[in-house]
Design a protein around this nucleic acid. Sequence first.
DNA 1: CAGCTTTAGCTAATGCTCGTAGCTTTGCGG
DNA 2: CCGCAAAGCTACGAGCATTAGCTAAAGCTG
Lengths: 222, 222
Amino acid sequence: MRTEGTTPARTAPPPAGLDRRARRRQETIEEILVIAVEVMAEDGVTGLSLAEVARRLGVQPPSIYKYFPSLMAVYDALFRRGQVEHLDAMRAAMVGVEPGLPALRAALEAAGGWALANRALAQLLFWRPVPSFVPSDDAFGPSVELFELHRTALADAVVAGQLGPAADSDEAVWLISVMISGVLSQTFANEPDVGWGQGCFTPLFPTLMSTLPVLYPVPGPG
Amino acid sequence: MRTEGTTPARTAPPPAGLDRRARRRQETIEEILVIAVEVMAEDGVTGLSLAEVARRLGVQPPSIYKYFPSLMAVYDALFRRGQVEHLDAMRAAMVGVEPGLPALRAALEAAGGWALANRALAQLLFWRPVPSFVPSDDAFGPSVELFELHRTALADAVVAGQLGPAADSDEAVWLISVMISGVLSQTFANEPDVGWGQGCFTPLFPTLMSTLPVLYPVPGPG
DNA sequence: CAGCTTTAGCTAATGCTCGTAGCTTTGCGG
DNA sequence: CCGCAAAGCTACGAGCATTAGCTAAAGCTG
């Protein structure tokens, strides 16, 4: 992971065998992260232990440190990965949907579905259950994109005449984030085995969304 | 607890001293719980360790087990205590306030204030950050009272004509719990040092509450 | 007041965790 | 084929929850 890329193709670009070693290493890193997600899903976010990961990988615990410098570094990689997946899920749900409120709602429901299907990662992302873990600035990157995705969708809704101009604001972004995180936190705490659309709380989300045109009314023609 | 040389038992030897031993024991239990809350406030809910509690109490770790059978039992006692405090805070905020929506809002804002002032306990109560800890049925008792407090306040609001009859429902209770927990979970995750009324999220709570009359409109005179 | 019982503390020890140090093997790359 | 870095190992240290067993004191009871 150091002497790479400085000197591009001397001869013909080696197809894939450039660093067969590096590729295997990357595969192992991948495997560790997959196992880590499994362990968190079973034992909770704070239940992640490198010893358990090593056990499932068929390796002695100290060997994990050849790939990650610490448990927190594993959390950081998972944090980054989770944010990317979460963002992808939202974007995928928006394609082909009318911009503005419909797209926003599709994105948020997709986010909710992703969170319930990936509870451990979602808690790591949005609830900070590990007090000693502070995500690195680097891992925080996609979070900015998330905010702007919301902000843009709200602006679209204003342009489309679905919401009043006040909805094109940070405050409105905070408001919808409160709505989605309220639904999710209640579901996480009280309904361990429920998917989006099921249980007491997730069906309330459309109700909450329906208040947006009330809170940000489009100005009358007068 | 240990340096208790001052025995005021001379002047009043057996005032209520039927079980002076049990009383001292109760005092120690109290002291352990107070220290445990302090530790959680500093190191997070999952950062609670009996070894640290013992250190601050001036005692060897195994001695804690004379008072609590396990770390989880300490969590359980804290859970129960937190629920009682939380409920008391809400009830105290309601006295002298007009029943119905005003009382409900006062109660919920007090709950928010309590949660931000007692973040560790609040997270233990409402976010379950310790996966291996499942509150005992016994410790869950006050939770029922909490639900009924909300339910009653909503019924009062219906009677007072502030909300439509549909607000006298479990669904409405779930809805307000989503609102308050959304505000709190966002504040916990993103604004570590903020009190009620400060920050991006807690000022949104009145806005959310203002949607209740829209979601549960009183039937028109027709 | 004497004695017995309960209790609160201790030390020692087990088995788990994260993480470090240092050695050995393996296998890729030149 | 040789050299060297990567990837594994064992051993170790510190900290945790928890158990077992001992000691001494506190207090109820005859």
